[in-house]
């Protein structure tokens, strides 16, 4: 019985750590990234979905769901994804256009510990809307980075497109782009000088369709190895889909798909 009581106390203590905290957001994240701008906390523009527990800290699938359709008159322009307790909270800034059809985005991020993951969507009228989700990190071996850099570097810059037609919204397509890149964080402490790995990660992604930008992003080290983005775009006619990728060392990669 005593050990049972102990277990209950331990799980209570562990459990209480698991409550989401807005401390980092209130104390500095909000002002760091948005200055004095007003941010409306609501889920009418965009919601965020992800696992309750991050089973694999290196690859945490996150889905952002737009609650409005993209139209010339009113659309989601920019989406900022922050992971409060990661070493670099800014996972990425993503830009959509009316051509996006729907400003949904699925991607994979790294999670260091229990953290709030928040999305701030800026609509074309300049207003900011925020929604958030608390995700527990779990699993001891789930380090947020992989351990086989050699293998990761072998395929650097290779890209894969996956296009599937969608019923909703009308005439839009779902596009997934996978970019092979180790996305080295540069945060690993130099335990033996000769093993130091400087940061090397995908910094910019730009997707064009017949020279119109349909999606672009500035990304950081919180994006998982082999960055992967899934989003929509409206394509009424055949054309060339081109992905341009630039990493933090200035390496550039492009890939074209004829649709």
């Amino acid at each position: 019985m005593r050990s049972l009581h102990f277990m209950l106390i331990v799980s209570f203590v562990l459990g209480s750590n698991a409550f989401s905290s807005d401390d980092a957001w209130q104390s500095h994240l909000k002002s760091d990234y948005f200055g004095a701008s007003e941010i409306i906390e609501d889920e009418s523009i965009m919601t965020i979905d992800g696992p309750v527990r991050a089973e694999n800290g290196a690859i945490v699938p996150i889905q952002l769901h737009a609650q409005i359709a993209q139209s010339e008159a009113f659309y989601i322009k920019t989406v900022t994804l922050l992971i409060d307790d990661n070493p670099d909270p800014l996972a990425g800034i993503f830009h959509f256009t009316p051509l996006s059809g729907k400003a949904d985005l699925a991607l994979r991020v790294r999670l260091n510990s229990y953290s709030n993951v928040r999305v701030i969507a800026e609509t074309s009228d300049g207003k900011l809307h925020m929604s958030k989700r608390f995700i527990k990190a779990s699993g001891g071996c789930s380090a947020p980075v992989g351990t086989d850099l050699e293998a990761a570097f072998k395929r650097i810059g290779k890209m894969k497109f996956k296009v599937s037609p969608e019923v909703e919204p009308q005439q839009s397509k779902k596009l997934q782009i996978a970019i092979s890149h180790p996305n080295v964080t540069g945060m690993q402490m130099n335990q033996q000088t000769r093993l130091y790995e400087p940061a090397h990660y995908v910094r910019k992604v730009r997707i064009t369709f017949n020279d119109d930008v349909i999606f672009s992003a500035e990304t950081g080290i919180s994006i998982s190895e082999n960055p992967n983005f899934r989003f929509y775009f409206a394509a009424q006619q055949p054309g060339d889909l081109i992905a341009h990728v630039q990493d933090s060392k200035g390496l550039e990669f492009t890939e074209t798909l004829n649709l």
Binding site: A143, V145, D148, M189, Q191, L195
Partner: peptide, 22 residues
Amino acid sequence: HKLAQSLALVGDFFLQRLRASE
């Protein structure tokens, strides 16, 4: 031969997790 590199990449993360334990 890849152990040292693996430890350099994830060792600190494991120590942090351990130090947060009881």
